[in-house]
Amino acid sequence: MRKKPVTHDLTSPSKPGQAIRALRNRLGLTLQEVSQRTGLAISTISKLEMGRASLSYEKLSVVSAGLGVNMSELLGLLGDSSASEGAPSVPGRRIIQRQGEGVAVRTGPYTETFLAVELLNKQLVPLIADVRSRTIQEFIEEFGSLIRHSGEEFTYILEGEIEFHTEFYAPVRLKQGESVYFDSSMGHAFLAASDGPCRLLSVCTSPEERVIEQLQKQE
């Protein structure tokens, strides 16, 4: 039987938010302490925990680093999986992802399905995104700004057409089978630019270990 992705809709009471709050409480961290570690406003963290703000890759990355855990561990909590018990970082490890598997987090503009969450300490974070926003205004209303996160990102269009916006370049339309590789610290957004499903595969370099190491040095 094919396993369906675990999906969380952030327009309803948020299980992801509950997982973040439970982990924060388990670690004995206050909202202010997480704010200091992540650079996110206390109000933003509170909204994330209550399911009133979109949990983008950017926020997921900084929250997991601020809590001092690997992103895959947090995703494992979101998906009620045993990701935190995944294979250690040793040579020869692997994970096979079957169609329909993954941990899916739904926001207004995107449904992001994170892949290979069972592997901890990955150098890459692969995900599939179903894009729904059609205007940059709609995107900004949902996320508050363009998305930024450290590292680099490779994006390949799986289905439909995507309009790719960045803060330094004019928007460009990407068709199925086309791709873009970019500095993901540059503000960016993906918009649906054709009728029907608009889907992409993104592979991001993971900043988790470097950020966590920096946090541990400060303690």
Rank of each mutant, 00 (worst) to 15 (best):
L31P: 10
H165M: 09
I95Y: 14
R52E: 15
E153K: 09
N25E: 15
E159I: 00
P16M: 04
A87G: 11
I95N: 15
V117H: 11
N121S: 12
S61I: 00
Q32K: 15
V103L: 08
T30W: 06
P207D: 06
G79V: 00
E112C: 14
N121Y: 05
E153V: 02
G51F: 04
S46I: 01
F139C: 09
T107G: 15
S64F: 02
F182A: 05
L74P: 09
F114Y: 13
I136Y: 04
A104W: 00
V63T: 01
D80Q: 09
T111K: 09
R2N: 15
A170T: 06
V6Q: 14
R26D: 15
A193F: 01
V103N: 07
G196E: 06
F190P: 08
I162K: 05
M71E: 05
R93I: 12
E219I: 02
D80H: 08
A193P: 08
K175V: 04
S82I: 00
H8C: 13
L78E: 05
S43V: 04
Q216E: 14
R210Y: 06
G66P: 12
I20W: 02
I42P: 11
L23T: 06
V63H: 05
V180R: 01
V103K: 05
M50N: 14
A22L: 10
L127F: 07
V172Y: 10
A41I: 00
A19V: 03
R132G: 07
E163F: 03
S145E: 13
Q99D: 14
Q216V: 01
S61Y: 00
I140L: 15
G28Q: 03
F154K: 05
L27M: 12
T113D: 06
S81L: 02
T7R: 15
H149P: 08
Y156R: 06
L115A: 06
L74N: 07
Y169C: 14
A87M: 08
G196K: 07
R93W: 08
E208Q: 13
K122F: 00
R2S: 15
T38W: 02
P126G: 02
Q137C: 13
S150Y: 07
L55V: 02
V103W: 01
S82W: 01
V34F: 03
E33T: 07
G102P: 09
N121W: 04
E33R: 14
D183N: 15
L27E: 12
K59L: 12
D195Y: 04
G151C: 05
G28S: 08
E112M: 13
V103A: 08
P207Y: 00
R24M: 10
P171A: 07
G86Y: 00
G39D: 13
Y156M: 11
P197M: 02
E153R: 04
F164G: 09
Q99N: 14
A170P: 12
P13H: 07
G160H: 03
I128D: 10
I140A: 09
V180N: 06
K4G: 11
G196W: 01
T7S: 14
E49L: 04
I20Q: 07
S54R: 08
T166K: 07
P16Y: 05
E85L: 03
G100Y: 03
A53F: 06
G160P: 06
D183G: 07
S43G: 15
E138T: 02
A104G: 11
E178T: 01
T205I: 03
D80Y: 04
T205V: 06
D183S: 10
F164P: 09
L191P: 10
C198P: 09
P13R: 08
E49Y: 02
S145C: 09
S89K: 11
C204V: 02
S133G: 12
R106L: 07
F139T: 05
